[in-house]
Design a binder for these strands. Structure first.
Lengths: 263, 263
DNA sequence: CCGTATTTGTTCGTATGTATT
DNA sequence: CAATACATACGAACAAATACG
């Protein structure tokens, strides 16, 4: 059984993109009409082929404009420290260490603060009863002005009652909200659990990251729970990254520094 | 602008699946023809809606049979130990610890051994020159008889020359190939680097995991490099998991044991 | 600012192929 | 072999986004 036509066309375009025959990053592909004529196929078949390329992140299509080559963007590399105190996503300058050394410029919006009732996942991670009160701080984070991640951290209300009132202020806490809690309430991080999930983006993520709206490009959701030395959780951070431009690295023990351009 | 029709239909089906109105796991959806009549749309529009559900892993479609509900399969949870010696993917019984405690039954094929020349990624991870000789051991791994992961480990040929000849035998090394190397050559793991990538499946993966062939469901590729105490790499393991049925957890420091059914 | 051309997105209808029962 | 279900492919029309004179 030969491959279907859309697939053969897709492979042909893939080869032409990888070899550079269709131009470098940012160059528009021929329009669907032109590809239809060139491959002697219907426009729908061409669209299936192009869709396959977008799923692979090799092209992006923009309504009204065209389809553009997207050659091997270097991925953002997020270092997941194996240290308990290692940042996975501080609010302030701290999280710069997540980004691979280089000229990448991280940036973040001011946090949006909400007072909510704990539901499902958050309640269970924080060891709270359903509908206990929590505070959430949500930020949009960028690298080089391109959308990089969405992050929300949830704290039990008791932290505020105990004096960490700064958590309610809608500006970035430097050098990091967790450090602020440590200093204010003498709570020390003694443990951490990171949970990785791959899933399709929701509407908010689709819009913010400018992903195709049929969920072809996945997001990585990292849920990090912090524990004090008695093993009680005191913060949960949920961060989502688009899967097509991120890589995660965890180094443990004695290992040489990151190789140059390792995949 | 209201959502397109395929999207509204998809949301409606999603709600009906989640609420159980369309039956539990394994129950067939109405056929495309019936859905076409029921929603007063064309069959193509119905297919767009169903495709969105398959991307989300909520249904599976099988040619000639139908489309079947796939309600919240419990994900396989892979523990990524933060310990240097922690297994991420031993060959033998060792990797059972990756699988969440329970009645899950891991199993693996006998390894397929190949002698190759190091290319790109493997050469750079192992610190070899391009075209140096390496040995690869490839396994298919299952949980409860369903395809779970594909794993290939690459070793530099010098390990065999130094006496680890068992690496060339095509059967499972118990309790693990790395442990065998440690014992035979007195090489100790002193460091580890795990690299996470999300990408679309290749043909082999699409077939083995029975994923849709247009790449809608991603795979997670974990590349683990092991270092001895001088910081020299001596093994690289590449494992791929289908993203729609796996979750990864890393625990560091003092943290309570895994909560019951945490997401 | 407006209208027009171009490009992708949505929706329809139809025909035929392939897999399964 | 026939019936049923999904997969592929074609052609057509209109909508929405964008670019440009």
């Amino acid at each position: 059984m030969p491959d279907p036509m859309w697939r053969r066309i897709a492979e042909d375009l893939r080869q032409k993109i990888e070899s550079g025959d269709l131009g470098k990053d940012g160059v528009p592909l021929p329009s669907e009409i032109e590809l239809r004529d060139r491959y002697d196929a219907s426009r729908n078949t061409i669209r299936d082929a192009v869709k396959w390329l977008t799923t692979r992140g090799m092209v992006v299509t923009r309504p009204g404009q065209g389809t553009f080559v997207r050659q091997s963007i270097d991925p953002f590399v997020t270092q997941l420290s194996s240290d308990v105190t290692g940042v996975q996503g501080g609010e302030g300058a701290a999280y710069a260490s997540e980004v691979k050394a280089g000229k990448r410029e991280p940036d973040a919006s001011d946090p949006r603060i909400e007072i909510q009732r704990a539901s499902g996942l958050v309640a269970s991670e924080l060891g709270l009863k359903h509908a206990d009160t929590i505070v959430s701080r949500h930020q949009e984070r960028f690298i080089d002005n391109t959308p990089w991640s969405l992050q929300t951290t949830f704290y039990p209300m008791r932290l505020i009652e105990q004096g960490a009132t700064r958590l309610l202020q809608a500006d970035t806490i430097l050098p990091g909200a967790v450090q602020y809690i440590e200093e204010t309430l003498s709570i020390k991080r003694a443990g951490r659990r990171d949970r990785f999930n791959i899933r399709t983006p929701d509407r908010r993520e689709t819009e913010f990251f400018a992903l195709p709206d049929d969920g072809r490009v996945a997001v990585v959701e990292v849920t990090q729970t912090l524990y004090d030395k008695s093993g009680n959780p005191f913060a949960v951070t949920v961060t989502t990254y688009p899967a097509d431009r991120n890589q995660f690295v965890m180094t443990i023990g004695t290992a040489p520094p990151e190789p140059p351009g390792a995949a």
